[in-house]
Design a protein around this nucleic acid. Structure first.
Lengths: 136, 136
DNA sequence: CCTTGAAGCTCTAGTTGCTAGAGAGATTAT
DNA sequence: ATAATCTCTCTAGCAACTAGAGCTTCAAGG
């Protein structure tokens, strides 16, 4: 399978696959006589794993850890669980932060009834932190 | 005021202030006899504005637009409102995405009851997209 | 007045996860 | 055989900083 086909099947762009190879997330595959990459089903599965993990927002480092873990199937899976759990916690924090932000942006955008910039609540809110409800 | 004092008062790190100067978010200030930056209250206010906007997650480009707008106080404030509104919409989308992610991570982490990697639900979930509830 | 230690200066390079482009070579279909 | 489409390597760029080297300046105490 060529890199383009692998790309089509996984949804990972061609340059990104080559980048992952550089980053040693995927191992360098066989080459054709003319030096082009040729992939097998093994690499397809590995890249699918990576793609899915990236879609879930996991960092490259975390994915590398998971890949290392999955290479040792007899080890306890607590570590893998921990990585996923950490990511869940981080995700929840991000959500909480963004929701605070949402409230503040809503307040700013609905508060503006001035006609020109000198009365603009958006500008004022950004200039004067004291207008914020919530110390962020 | 030295760059360090400005940094302390705004919460923006010293190298970041210099970076903003390079990016022309703040104008290059006066210098002391020995070539050190000396800031006035004007720059303090402007940097406070920038800090606040950055904390709210606005991109540098958006902030530059807002700064340009605030430099023309007689113009209508609809543009500033639009920038804030766009950011609010983007924020809401991010929240929605993260919440989907949260659901999936929760499913993954609570689903794992195997003892070793070969039964690990985390690894399996990431390998097999078909286990996902929701096409992401 | 002089020293000393903190703070400031410029410049370069690194971070993360890619993406874009140049210019050359390989493969495939007709 | 030839044209069209991949693919190759390499370099550089993005955002928004951060870190470090090696040097100069400032402010305060003795």
């Amino acid at each position: 399978m060529s890199i383009g086909e692998l790309s089509r099947k996984t949804g990972v762009k061609v340059p990104t696959i080559r980048y992952y190879e550089q980053m040693k997330l995927v191992t360098a595959p066989e080459r054709s006589a003319g030096n082009q990459r040729r992939y097998s089903i093994v690499e397809l599965e590995r890249l699918t794993f990576i793609k899915h993990a990236r879609d879930l927002g996991l960092k490259i480092d975390a994915i590398r850890e998971l890949l290392d873990l999955s290479a040792h199937p007899e080890q306890p899976c607590a570590d893998a669980n921990q990585i996923a759990q950490n990511h869940l916690n981080a995700t929840r924090e991000r959500i909480a932060k963004l929701q605070k932000l949402e409230v503040e942006l809503l307040r700013i955008t609905t508060g503006c009834h001035g006609d020109s910039i000198k009365d603009c609540y958006v500008i004022q809110s950004l200039s004067d932190h004291a207008l914020c409800q919530d110390g962020h």
